[in-house]
Design a protein around this nucleic acid. Structure first.
Lengths: 346, 346
DNA sequence: ATTAGCACTCACTAGTAGAGAGTGCTAAAA
DNA sequence: TTTTAGCACTCTCTACTAGTGAGTGCTAAT
């Protein structure tokens, strides 16, 4: 069933008002603040319809209306006009980006801080993913008998290392040989390409070292995933908890519990469609109980045109979608640019 | 002025009771629950004295008494008996420690989780400090023209790496030379020993590379500090906020703000006497406003007899000091043992 | 020195009343 | 047929009022 133009206008008015006041919106308010040219009584009738259709609801009989998740969804999909950032806001962001930080991961973290500052909600960040990068250099260092260190360096400027147990008989020069071979064969490949067929190919070239090689490859592959999984951060919780919906501690504690579990955060982040540049999940659309009263908006950031991570905002369902989206849009673009210059320059 | 035996007993009773109930303690309660053989009236007189001396105070005229920070201090210093952990608790800890984790830092993090689980307060952890370790191996890897990666490996099993800009003229073999020299000269030294006089000594052995060497040394030294400073973690906030003193969001938010600032956390952690095995800071003894209603107990953990980090508990001043101390004692010993086996075995 | 007794204080609870915001329905107006 | 004015009704919120109970400090007796 199609909503009339007027109903849409009323719904939009209700949401806009509710987002900024956090109070249920009555017919009188809509009539007064948004000149729709109709009386409160008419609006009341329309509101009754909207409620019947599930776009808004009443906290109690004699209160105004509050948008439902379904209402927000409609709003986000077709009603909302994405506002432009003001000059002040752009300046603020640019100023914040001026601050020098070292390391690509810290740049992303810095961005997340800006994000939650600008929006007044919490931010969640998926750091630059190893799995989205290609191998630039790999080195196996001999530490002591039976132990070696794998150092992985990617084209995105990420450096990770991992201790590995090796056969006690291996010497430093053995490792050197393996290192050289791996570099020759694997450079420029992404993880997806370093698969089992690759292993076989490398294997053929290294008689006598097959076992070590296989071990090394396994460590590399598992490390990739492991590092990526650990690269999830959140910040700005104090901002989020300033919102009136977090008056009762119960909710706050539930969310804090969630934030302590990186793998849960990860799942929530992953529920968003990963291929989409901008993903919006509203309230009950979230799979996890703890965030069913929150909305999550995530966007991708890139390096040299390739998506390498996501950055997002977690707020109450009554969040300022338009504002958040415009900040996210600007910020991810800005971040991508900074990452690029970060990698080239320095 | 010396407190009579009886006053001490009453103070102890008040604190014990307040710690477990979070309610102001009245004279009747003390008389009934703790058989001191005196009537409520007498206790009231003694309580009036204790209040005058600043060990306890009244929230309002007709309420029972609540310990003051000074009262807690006396309690902690001379009244409290440190309880033994129950068999169940020891089992629980041992079971938690059974879980395999990789990397020395993760072992410490795991311990912090156990700590806040056992105590129901928040835990703060200072990871294994580079500055408390000695150099086991250092390696400078050539990445590309003008860029190199320093990899530092310590005797404590820590591995850190840092990208460094180098003169564009340097080749891979130059770096090898420097690496070899550094390894020869610096191995087994702690940061305190890698100071400027050391730099001079190394310098004399490397004609033509003085500049790079100096740069490298500077990067190493500053990285040491930088890595150490970033190794502070906290967890268990949901536990902490379950405590009745965190009913109002204002306090919660203030603390959350604090937790977002690593350097502030660091300062708080550092205010504790670093040379002490067990440091207790009570309420207003804390320098930072945000934690003046909290107490912090920290303990050291060691590797091969050398202190390499601290682990602590942050709770309301009304925390169960005795319990926390016994858990901390046991846990740090257990942790030190695990770290040792982790380093040797694996 | 200790204690019983007592008046007093103060937070907390429940109950009540009134105000205000907003609704749905009805009947009149457009 | 649609819109609107009017009105009774509902429900939350606030302020006020006792009443209760825990706990105190003081006084006088033990």
């Amino acid at each position: 069933m199609k909503l009339s133009e007027r109903k849409l206008k009323i719904l939009k008015a209700i949401i806009d008002n509710y987002v900024s006041t956090a109070e249920p919106v009555g017919s009188r308010t809509v009539a007064k603040k948004y000149n729709l040219g109709i009386s409160p009584a008419t609006i009341r009738n329309e509101m009754a319809d909207l409620e019947e259709m599930g776009y808004i609801k009443q906290p109690h009989t004699s209160a105004g209306r509050v948008p439902s998740d379904r209402g927000y969804r409609l709003y986000v999909d077709s009603l909302m006009e994405v506002e432009q950032l003001s000059k002040d806001e752009i300046d603020k962001i640019n100023r914040a980006f001026k601050k020098k930080v070292e390391g690509i991961e810290n740049v992303v973290l810095q961005t997340s801080k800006i994000l939650s500052d600008m929006t007044d909600y919490a931010s969640i960040v998926l750091g630059p993913q190893l799995t989205k990068s290609t191998l630039k250099r790999i080195q196996i260092l001999y530490i002591e008998q039976g132990k070696a260190l794998i150092v992985i360096i990617t084209n995105t400027g990420l450096v990770e290392n991992k201790l590995m147990d090796i056969p006690k008989t291996l010497t430093e020069s053995d490792l050197m040989k393996i290192t050289n071979l791996l570099n020759e064969e694997l450079l420029g490949l992404s993880l997806d390409e370093i698969n089992s067929s690759m292993i076989k190919k490398v294997r053929n070239r290294l008689f006598g070292y097959e076992d070590v090689l296989e071990l090394t490859m396994r460590v590399i592959i598992s490390s990739y995933r492991e590092f990526d999984d650990s690269k999830i951060y959140f910040g700005g919780t104090p901002n989020l908890f300033k919102q009136p919906e977090f008056m009762d501690m119960e909710k706050v504690r539930n969310l804090l519990c969630l934030f302590e579990e990186k793998n849960l955060l990860m799942e929530i982040m992953m529920d968003a469609l990963l291929d989409k540049d901008l993903a919006i999940t509203i309230g009950s659309e979230n799979k996890h109980e703890e965030v069913k009263s929150c909305s999550l908006i995530t966007a991708t950031y890139k390096l040299n045109g390739k998506i390498i991570g996501r950055i997002g905002v977690l707020g109450p369902t009554r969040m300022n979608y338009s504002k958040v989206i415009s900040v996210l849009n600007f910020l991810t673009k800005r971040l991508s640019r900074k990452l690029k210059s970060h990698l080239e320059g320095e």
